[in-house]
């Protein structure tokens, strides 16, 4: 585990800034979600838009966990991003904060399973798994997924896994290796 596994005000500001940065970049991608919803509604697959975009929404968590390597960073990164989104005109209002907390816990669980000892592809696979399952369970209630047919649920689950693995896995890995190569992280 990291030697300086304590929170300093600098880390807290950094996490909140990253959360807001991601929020700002994604404000520009809202049209993707809306466009997908419009395109998928006539064929009865509108919820798929939610699952396709899920990876984008959870990116802040794995990234924060990989950058700071402090227990709780994954949760806090994701949660602060959600709080920021709530204040600055997100689409979902108060439920953003609840979703953020659930996503945060689900991501953090992936890091917890490694005991915070290693940070590699296995970690990313674990966070992808835990966040897929965690967010999906929440959507069973929030978005009424429980009413869908098993075939539809399976499709949604697979798409969600791929989306989270692409954005919260591959893209996060690419970003962190850029950061590693530039030696800007003082660990």
């Amino acid at each position: 585990m990291n030697q300086r596994a304590r929170w300093h005000v600098r880390d807290i500001i950094l996490l909140a800034l990253i959360g807001i940065l991601f929020g700002v970049i994604f404000l520009g991608t809202n049209f993707i979600y809306d466009g997908l919803t419009v395109a998928l509604t006539p064929v009865g697959l509108a919820p798929l838009a939610n699952d396709i975009s899920m990876g984008l929404w959870i990116m802040a968590g794995p990234l924060a966990g990989f950058m700071l390597r402090i227990p709780g960073a994954g949760f806090l990164g994701e949660f602060l991003a959600a709080v920021g989104e709530m204040f600055f005109g997100g689409q979902w209002g108060a439920s953003t904060m609840i979703s953020g907390a659930i996503q945060g816990v689900a991501i953090e669980l992936g890091f917890t399973l490694t005991g915070y000892r290693f940070y590699n592809w296995i970690t990313l696979l674990l966070t992808t798994l835990t966040s897929t399952v965690g967010t999906f369970a929440w959507d069973m209630f929030r978005n009424g997924y429980a009413a869908f047919s098993p075939k539809m649920l399976f499709l949604l689950l697979v798409v969600r896994f791929i989306s989270i693995f692409f954005f919260g896995g591959i893209l996060v890995k690419l970003i962190t290796s850029l950061l590693e190569r530039s030696h800007v992280l003082h660990r």
Binding site: A46, P47, A49, Q91, G144, F148
Partner: peptide
């Protein structure tokens, strides 16, 4: 839009 999408799907 999201609300309508859910409505139609359900």
């Amino acid at each position: 839009l999201p609300a309508l999408g859910l409505f139609v799907t359900i």
